[in-house]
Design a protein around this nucleic acid. Structure first.
Lengths: 204, 204
DNA sequence: TACCATACTTGACACTGTCAATTGACGTTG
DNA sequence: CAACGTCAATTGACAGTGTCAAGTATGGTA
């Protein structure tokens, strides 16, 4: 190979490397995620990842965005068939999908929400991915707001809602909540938060 | 020096090393926190820290616990003179101290709430420190619960309360909330969460 | 005075991220 | 058609990391 790569070839190899990195992260933990290990696992030479990612930090950033998008899709899929149902019920489904994702992919979840370079601001792409992620729940809340169902502005309710989920997942990832308890807990917490935000909840 | 160190000497040197590590973390960021750098800054030889901490992970664990205790003390100090005031107001003070701590010591805050070894459970000492930290707010909520002021069990309200704070601080640490906004936001969010948890809030 | 337990230091190693020089395969051009 | 030049890909090298293991030195004890 000698000629300049087409844009497609570049993104293809990038996603190939990203997938490899993802499976290393899931299967062997964050500690095993090293550039050399990635190169070996991808069947390329040591330095090749640097042709597609400026840094290791850039690689991890890309992983973060990919993980975030995956989380967004998971949440969207959770409400895919329930568009007609109660808004509160939809939010419950979203929250549950969110927590399940955090439990199923603890390493990825932590990676997604742990910035590597605290000094530098997040890239626009990253910011966009986060907004898309938050929007899954927030869009529902905006609908509810327009229908006059909400006791507080939707972005604020979404903050509290998301923060409560995030806090619970973090607590569990630190081993401070037993696996068995967390699903009841998340359900009850969601109910409380939503009860706080909605003027009158639907049923049961 | 040749004779066995007394327990006091050991803990003295341990805390000396811990303080050094803390100031490195604050002044130069987490990336600069290396064992060699710590040794140099403490005026001892490369390997000396290993005489007092089994691992680098053990050192960081100790820092985590120290930071957690410092946070606990900060929160306690925030309500020290306000024991007689409204419970909701006390919780506001605690929450504000909490957020202020997170903003003032972002590196330490992140360290405290980021487990290094996700596989191993937290040590008893760490667990104890976390419980003490959570207890600052939870004790107030238990009082309120006994006075019949709460709409939900105190531990659950505390979960939501703490998770909302933690989520907000994390968001800011990732640069997703501007510094100027966060204090109004935290205040409003606290009000909402407490309004959710308390049957009837105090005043204003 | 000789010893020796023990705090501390230095040597060494495997491993990391990453820069710089090298290689090697192809389309272009003389 | 052959020499070239371009550029993906590889390998060499280096500083820096955590940490084991061997060495050094110091001061109480026999």
């Amino acid at each position: 190979m000698n000629k300049p790569l087409t844009g497609d070839e570049i993104t293809e190899k990038r996603t190939m490397l990203l997938d490899c990195a993802m499976s290393i992260l899931e299967n062997e933990g964050a500690g095993a995620l090293t550039v050399r290990r990635l190169a070996e696992s991808a069947g390329v030479s040591r330095q090749t990842p640097y042709l597609y990612f400026k840094d290791k930090a850039a690689l991890v950033d890309a992983m973060r965005i990919a993980g975030l998008n995956r989380l967004t899709e998971t949440a969207q899929a959770a409400v895919a068939g329930a568009e007609q149902r109660d808004l509160v019920e939809q939010l419950r489904l979203i929250g549950e999908a969110y927590v399940r994702f955090g439990l199923d992919n603890p390493a990825l979840y932590k990676l997604v929400f742990t910035p590597i370079r605290p000094d530098e601001p997040p890239t626009p792409e990253h910011k966009e991915a986060i907004e898309a992620n938050q929007n899954v729940a927030e869009a529902r809340m905006k609908s509810a707001w327009q229908e006059g169902l909400l006791a507080m502005p939707p972005d604020r309710l979404n903050n509290v809602f998301w923060a409560a989920l995030h806090g619970l997942i973090s607590l569990r990832n630190e081993g401070l909540i037993a696996d068995g308890e967390i699903f009841e807990q998340i359900r009850a917490d969601m109910d409380y938060v939503l009860a706080c935000g909605f003027i009158n909840r639907g049923e049961k």
